[in-house]
Write a protein that binds this DNA or RNA. Sequence first.
DNA 1: CGCCGAGTTGAACTGAATCAAGAAACGTGG
DNA 2: CCACGTTTCTTGATTCAGTTCAACTCGGCG
Lengths: 188, 188
Amino acid sequence: MNQVREYLEQIVALDDKNWEVFSSKLKKSEFSKKTVLVKTGQVENHLSFIEKGTVRFYIPKVENDITFGFKFENQFISAYDSFITQSKSQYQLETMTPTTLWRLTFSDLQDIYNNTTVGETIGRKVAENLFMMKTKRELSLLNDTAEERYLKLFSEQKRFIKEIPLKYLASYIGVTPQALSRIRKRIS
Amino acid sequence: MNQVREYLEQIVALDDKNWEVFSSKLKKSEFSKKTVLVKTGQVENHLSFIEKGTVRFYIPKVENDITFGFKFENQFISAYDSFITQSKSQYQLETMTPTTLWRLTFSDLQDIYNNTTVGETIGRKVAENLFMMKTKRELSLLNDTAEERYLKLFSEQKRFIKEIPLKYLASYIGVTPQALSRIRKRIS
DNA sequence: CGCCGAGTTGAACTGAATCAAGAAACGTGG
DNA sequence: CCACGTTTCTTGATTCAGTTCAACTCGGCG
């Protein structure tokens, strides 16, 4: 739980009273590998902080899923569009390893927004960060080759990337598994 | 200015007192066609609402710019990452037509965050919306063909798209102008 | 009127998709 | 803990969408 506080304090000053409200809502949950946390068509009801584990974001497809994100320990996860609009999710979240989460429900979060002085600020800054990351990603998809995206990913997240199956990485980069296999061969 | 209030009221309930604080900061500016509003390397100091006009988001390149967005009347614009982090912008904004903006500076916005009850909520919801739009775009870039992206754009923004030069649309869709020219020919 | 940028069209080339088959790794039950 | 079956990864051959280079047309505006 300290990990959560540390994370939040990077974003905004957090006194004990605010943290008290926030932390009183957090519930710890453990999930085994390959657990689907949010299914398409369901409404996301959680904002979760990963204490330990890896989570994949994807649109399920008969043949190959479209994987568009990975999150690791010390990051927040959610099918955030579904969560904030409380409408059906278009994509799924699934654990890739045994995973420990600290979770907040939608109504918990509304309470925090209403009963803390910093809740809205945290919410805003989190959304701003998400937006900036997506902007970076958009430009990478428009601008970089598949090979460049792979190399970037590798240099930024080496530790985790090595543990992710090639077929998911391929989809994230925007190519087929065969193509990524050949890219790897070429650059090694 | 009423347009701004109407826009904000779609996001959050806004009483006269809050609106008073907000609107007292707004300054109207007019720009001629092809004016660069933010240059790469500069820090964005404005959050602006388009009363009238069209603005293009792009990374300037010697040969072909990378155009990654268009905004039209009744939308907010900003090199938002630069604005919120107050660091150098990686991209530029440029008017494509004569444009009228209602503008807020960074410090104006901080005042609003501090002196209104709804400022932070608006900030959060705006960021959340930006995030959702980028998510949609990311999935389109991963999932759709260039042709599908063109058709979607066309069906969503027909009115404006017809006025945008092909070479910018091509870049936005992720292909060369020649390729888009052929796509158009094929589907017409 | 002439020029220049924007758009179109053609031809050759290329990176990645697709189809296919075999090798390696993985997990599950006996 | 091994054996089998399934999934993942690799490699090859073919196809295809889009790039690149180049030439030509069109329309605006200086």
